[in-house]
Design a protein around this nucleic acid. Structure first.
Length: 431
RNA sequence: UGCCCGAUAGCUCAACGGUAGAGUAGGCGGCUGUUAACCGCUUGGUUGUAGGUUCGAAUCCUACUCGGGCAGCCA
């Protein structure tokens, strides 16, 4: 008789099993207790009937508090009245710790309270479901690239200077008198890696010190950044599209129960199939005029514009060929006019915002050098990056996909702070 | 950083110038199939901080602190 996880109860009907977990909640009815037990893989109802167990054990079952740690022995039964279809007929109960006054109740709580108790909030059904899906998304991302012979090339987290020269960076001390910065993107290192190994991806945490406080922002978040030698903008879009389709399919395949617990409308995910709409910036601008978002041509897309585009298509939409003024210095421009940067933003549906951004990179040494000067960036800091254009430069490109925004979209969560175990935001670094 | 909103019981909220209340959680009791179980009783408060107006302030005013939403910036 050994431990069986709740997830596997269906294969143990009629058998006596041991469940090791915690008391999630209880409903008592006189000579009958219904204990909802959780073990990290799910929640199951355990039935304790007076007369079927020792009186003292029955009393204990009716007394222990929420989140008490318990080891329970019982018979797995199939029963339509039980949530999830299975229940455990309790025979023995061992209490490791009887808990009093667990802070989080089964009721509405405010965000500040929940975030302060994040270490406990993770035990709740929906949060656990989000974390399992997050784990699956990471796995699906890695599988996608690994299956296509990409090499994982981790970029450093300490960097000597800004990667893109735009975002506000977190500054840290780096030994005596030296300053270092937490990376905001592994892209430039990814480009070096792609020149060495052809197809690579960087996957790790990045840091942004901008004082953004919206439901789409974290100061520390995870980003996957593939980079491919000899790739064009179209190749980059194909890769991003394939990745997102694969991730959504994997979540749908393995997490129906979690999505149901999250009350996610899965029809919104089941329709996510290639090809995604691809429109130029100019086409997006014309569409936004028609949709009446107040968009001004020449600007970057604002949050309301992104939401409108996502609503209009009901699919991730890739907006490409941007006025170069609104895009980063390292993006290549179109050969015909030189007006447009060969960049793309993938905008998710349902208000999830920009899920990914990528581009074909500028591969000409002199052009890139000119851009660095024009942007007032310190040339010496980019010496190694310029070497990539000096020694065997080739067309190449890649994108960065925000993990938490992707998870938030798939899980139907309003806020990205629910989509990382311990979020770091403008106003919070505890717990 | 700008604009807006909020802070009252452990938690979620009500009371909007006149004795601070409910639900929930906790405690006690009842109930043999509950699904946020239900029923009865009950503990629980320096109304975020500091000042001001007033006979009287949770309520009106000012500042501060903390938090939330939106925008900008971005993934």
């Amino acid at each position: 008789m050994s431990q069986v996880y709740i997830r596997d109860f269906g294969a143990h009907v009629g058998k006596v099993v041991v469940l090791k977990g915690w008391l999630y909640s209880r409903r008592s009815k006189g000579k009958l207790h219904f204990l909802l037990l959780r073990d990290g893989t799910g929640i199951v109802q355990s039935v304790v009937m007076k007369g079927e167990v020792a009186d003292e054990l029955f009393d204990v079952a009716g007394r222990i508090g929420q989140e008490s740690s318990v080891i329970v022995t019982g018979v797995v039964r199939e029963d339509a009245r039980a949530p999830g279809g299975y229940e455990l007929g309790l025979q023995d109960l061992q209490v490791l710790q009887d808990v009093k006054d667990y802070p989080i109740a089964h009721q509405e709580h405010g965000p500040d309270f929940l975030m302060t108790h994040r270490h406990l909030w993770l035990r709740s059904k929906k949060q656990a479901a989000v974390m399992r899906i997050r784990s699956r998304v990471v796995r699906a991302i890695r599988d996608y690239f690994d299956d296509r012979d990409f090499t994982l090339m981790d970029a450093p987290i300490f960097t000597p200077n800004a990667c893109e020269g735009t975002s506000t960076l977190f500054e840290v001390n780096y030994f005596d008198e030296a300053k270092a910065y937490l990376t905001q993107s592994g892209q430039l290192y990814g480009e070096a890696a792609a020149m060495a190994l052809g197809k690579i991806y960087v996957f790790g945490p990045v840091f942004r010190a901008e004082k953004s406080k919206t439901r789409r922002h974290l100061t520390e978040f995870w980003m996957v950044e593939p980079e491919v030698a000899y790739a064009t903008l179209a190749d980059v879009m194909n890769l991003a599209e394939g990745l997102v389709c694969s991730v959504v399919a994997e979540v749908l395949k393995h997490h129906r129960k979690d999505l149901a617990d999250l009350e996610r409308d899965v029809s919104k995910l089941e329709c996510i199939k290639a090809p995604f709409p691809r429109i130029t910036y100019d086409e997006a601008a014309a569409l936004l005029q028609k949709l009446g978002t107040g968009f001004v041509y020449g600007n970057d897309l604002g949050a309301p514009d992104e939401t409108a585009l996502g609503e209009h298509f009901g699919m991730p939409v890739m907006v490409h060929s941007w006025p170069h003024e609104v895009k980063a210095f390292y993006m290549k421009r179109d050969a015909a006019t030189g007006r447009f940067a060969l960049g793309m933003d993938m905008i998710g549906p349902e208000g999830s915002g920009e899920l990914a951004g990528g581009s074909q990179r500028e591969d000409d040494l002199d052009v890139l050098l000119g851009r660095i000067k024009a942007h007032g960036l310190p040339e010496e800091s980019f010496a190694w990056y310029l070497d990539l254009r000096r020694y065997g430069s080739v067309p190449h490109g890649g994108f960065g996909l925000g993990l938490e925004r992707t998870v938030a979209w798939i899980c139907g969560r309003e806020h990205v702070r629910e989509c990382i175990p311990f979020p770091r935001t403008l106003n919070r670094i505890y717990p």
